[in-house]
Design a binder for these strands. Structure first.
Lengths: 229, 229
DNA sequence: TTGCATTTCAAACATTTGTATGAAACTATC
DNA sequence: GATAGTTTCATACAAATGTTTGAAATGCAA
């Protein structure tokens, strides 16, 4: 293998173009023009367009997953093998939110690519996402250790809602910005992570209440304030 | 105008095919074959493929938005012009969740179409979604009336998170099902709505806590149980 | 240098796809 | 029942796009 030059030029150009203009609008000819390589090089090095997209997404996914697991292990080590639930949720949503939001992240091609992959999901990416369940199970296991005795169902719902808030914030940040007329600060990533983590932990610690609406007297009139905690 | 037969046959066939196989995999030729009409009929009646998709999505969006506003008004009327926050959130997420989840909804073409539109967003649909902000403002206004004095920012975040949980549950229901090995019951729509509403209201009533993580002592060790409420 | 494998290149291929055309069929009005 | 407007139809068009091909160039080892 000579130098990988062509291969990495294609990867870089493809990621940049996909991040900027989306998968639907970028053709192989756009990519090879941006990378200054021959059209056939894509099929030579990657086999097909879909495999190129898959490689891009897998690379970035592995990075994110590794960051998540590093944070999770750090939290578990600090707690002697059992992390507190708050830190687990932080490890789950932190890396993605930090990577995709924030003021300086505007220039991060990788982050914008992952946002794009989250918004307009194409077949090769969908196939990979389907294998993400194994990764999430590690978090479910950590949560189970942190909250022994809690029903598994609640754990999964909490995990699910945490990802919901994180991903939806990334996906719909433009809309939230417009809806709030700029009042919601999407550059303060730390505050956003705190917010998502806090709500996730609340959801988890509410437990079985959710299925019994009558058992929520303090909420019925929507008058619960911070002091009521 | 004669009978609208061709027009509605195209709409029905297109919605069914898009719902089943996604936008990327369905061509105009597939649609006209399913509808038993001529290829040129699409452009004659709708102008273009994108306008056909737009009409499908607009129709279903209007239906959902109307349901939401009906529920909202009913709640406000019942409360003498001011609905409780819980009912407002229920009006926001209830129609979509009821429409897209549940056991018998498997056969609802409209619901499956909207799920598809939520998963693989295509240009004509994205353009329409961008105009959805005005509709959400009505809910923000109702929430403001229900929780006077609360900071607007918190209102928007709560609204945003409610939609996040609802939409993500629809989008990723397969994954949640697989992750939880079937333990999360995605057919019990009423329980899911309660769950989303409860967490949303919690998020809203937490208010400014989120930006000050140090002010959450009861949560730090993840030991808050139902009794602590 | 010679020989062999790898990589690059220009060009062509083969489809697919949305759209346009113009004639034919149909419908309703007078 | 003739006419004008509407709708349907078969067919063609034009453009885009991923992929393939076979030769040329390049790099490397003997």
């Amino acid at each position: 293998m000579a130098s990988d030059h062509t291969r990495s030029a294609i990867l870089a150009a493809a990621e940049r173009l996909y991040a900027d203009r989306g998968f639907g609008d970028v053709t192989l000819r756009d990519i090879v023009a941006e990378a200054n390589v021959n059209l056939a090089a894509v099929n030579y090095h990657f086999g097909s367009k879909d495999e190129l997209i898959a490689e891009l997404f897998v690379t970035r996914s592995i990075q994110t997953n590794r960051e998540r697991l590093n944070e999770l292990r750090a939290a578990e080590d600090a707690g002697g093998g059992r992390a507190v639930i708050e830190d687990i949720m932080r490890a789950l949503v932190g890396p993605t939110l930090r990577g995709c939001l924030g003021p300086d992240r505007e220039g991060s091609t990788a982050a914008r690519f992952m946002i794009r992959a989250s918004i307009e999901s194409v077949p090769p990416i969908r196939r990979i996402k389907n294998r993400e369940v194994d990764h999430l199970r590690k978090f479910a296991a950590a949560m189970r250790r942190a909250m022994p005795g809690r029903d598994d169902t609640e754990l999964y719902w909490g995990l699910h809602f945490a990802l919901a808030m994180a991903h939806h914030t990334i996906r719909e940040k433009e809309r939230l910005l417009r809806l709030s007329e700029g009042k919601c600060d999407l550059d303060d990533v730390r505050a956003i992570i705190d917010r998502v983590v806090t709500v996730s932990v609340m959801a988890l610690t509410m437990g079985d209440v959710a299925s019994k609406p009558a058992a929520r007297p303090v909420l019925v009139h929507g008058r619960l304030t911070r002091q009521d905690l």
